[in-house]
Amino acid sequence: MSATSSTDTELAARAVNVHKVYGTGDAQVAALRGVDVDLRRGQFTAIMGPSGSGKSTLMHCLAGLDTVSEGDVYVADMKVNGMSDKELTALRRDRIGFIFQQFNLLPMLTAEENILLPLAIAGRKPSPEWLAKVIETVGLSDRLGHRPTELSGGQQQRVACARALVSQPEVIFADEPTGNLDSRAGAEVLKFLRDSVRTLGQTIVMVTHDPNAASYADRVVFFADGHVVSEITEPTADAVLDMMKKIDTLEKVA
């Protein structure tokens, strides 16, 4: 089963028949075995699947953090595989945003400085309106001067989200962004992500294990054993849960 769709200009990122093999010989692991995914602009996509099914690997390949063994990866209309380190750096700086499970904020910088870091690295000035909008959406206006250690996990993750948003990247990759948060803080972050898609037109791809989290997305892509096995649009938590069970039984049968 594949998840292809209409014209290229609407696509923020795309994976075409991507294979990824780790290791050699006996220790060989095929993490991705021919994955085709299209990620449309302005869409909030969730990726789900059992542990070890290759979700993170796909994200890493899409973001140019890891190389593919076979197939092609595109961000906007640029082919990511085959780029030099310099090009990859520029790609990450200008076109891609990251949200990590561990927040990965810089401890010596304040929240605001962390948010502005991608722009500072690129040597760009933030447009004041955009910045105000982002900060308002994250809801951290009174916490901007604080250091990461002085913020709660949820707040830190929202700073990380703002950091990913501020440079208006083509696509934001979030690998289990709520994995380290309790349900309330997680809900705040997810709401924020959904809002940024709805109101700011951002494209976001999120890996999650939580059907509830997935229900915030516009579309859920299901992974198993290095393949895309199914997808749901306009998901509800129940629909996601059902699908997960189905995949589980399928796997057991297989």
């Binding site: 973001a63 953090l65 380190d85 310099k86 750096t89 520029a90 990450r92 700086r93 200008d94 945003g97 990251f98 990590f100 561990q102 990965n104 904020l105 810089l106 401890p107 870091l117 991608p118 690295i121 690129a122 950091r163 990913a164």
Partner: peptide, 16 residues
């Protein structure tokens, strides 16, 4: 290492 990784991930170049 992690911090450096994050910096590099959000686009800090090698020279930088």
């Amino acid at each position: 290492t992690k911090e450096l990784g994050a910096l590099r991930a959000i686009g800090l170049g090698r020279g930088q």
